[in-house]
Simulated assay, not measured.
Amino acid sequence: MHEVFEGQRARLTGLAYRMLGSRQDAEDLVQEAYLRWARAGEVEHPQAWLTKVVSNLCLNELASARVRRESYTGPWLPEPVFTDEDPVELRDTVSYALLTLMERLTPAERAVFVLKEAFGYSHHEIAGFLDLTDANTRQLHSRARRRLGDGPRFTPSPEEQRRLVERFLAAAVEGDIDGLTSLLAADVTAWSDGGGKARAALRPITGREKVLRYVLGLVRRLGGAEIVLTEFNGEPAMVTFGEGSPFTATVFEVGEEGLTGLRTVLNPEKLRLVALRLSHS
Rank of each mutant, 00 (worst) to 15 (best):
S64F: 13
W49N: 09
T106E: 08
D84A: 06
T51S: 00
L59F: 06
V81F: 04
D131A: 14
E70M: 13
D92G: 09
A108N: 09
T100L: 15
N56H: 02
V53H: 01
T51W: 06
V112K: 00
P87Y: 05
V67W: 00
C58A: 15
V112C: 06
E79G: 07
M102Q: 06
S64T: 05
S55R: 00
A48P: 05
D84N: 10
Y72V: 00
G74N: 10
R138C: 09
G128R: 02
L115W: 08
M102K: 05
L105K: 01
L90M: 12
W76S: 02
R91L: 14
V53P: 04
C58S: 15
T93R: 13
L130M: 07
V114N: 04
A118R: 06
T106Q: 00
P87L: 05
I126R: 07
E85R: 13
V114T: 15
C58K: 12
R66E: 02
L62W: 05
F129T: 11
Y72C: 01
G128K: 01
A118H: 10
V81W: 07
A65V: 00
E89Y: 11
E125L: 14
V53G: 02
A97G: 14
D86Y: 12
P107A: 11
S71K: 09
L130T: 13
D86T: 05
A97F: 01
L132K: 13
A65G: 03
A65P: 03
E89C: 07
L98K: 14
G128V: 00
A135K: 04
I126W: 01
Y121T: 03
D84G: 10
V88I: 14
R143S: 08
L130V: 10
R143F: 00
E109R: 03
D134Y: 07
R110F: 11
D131V: 14
P80E: 09
E70S: 15
P75N: 01
H124W: 08
E85N: 11
S71H: 15
K52S: 12
A63Q: 11
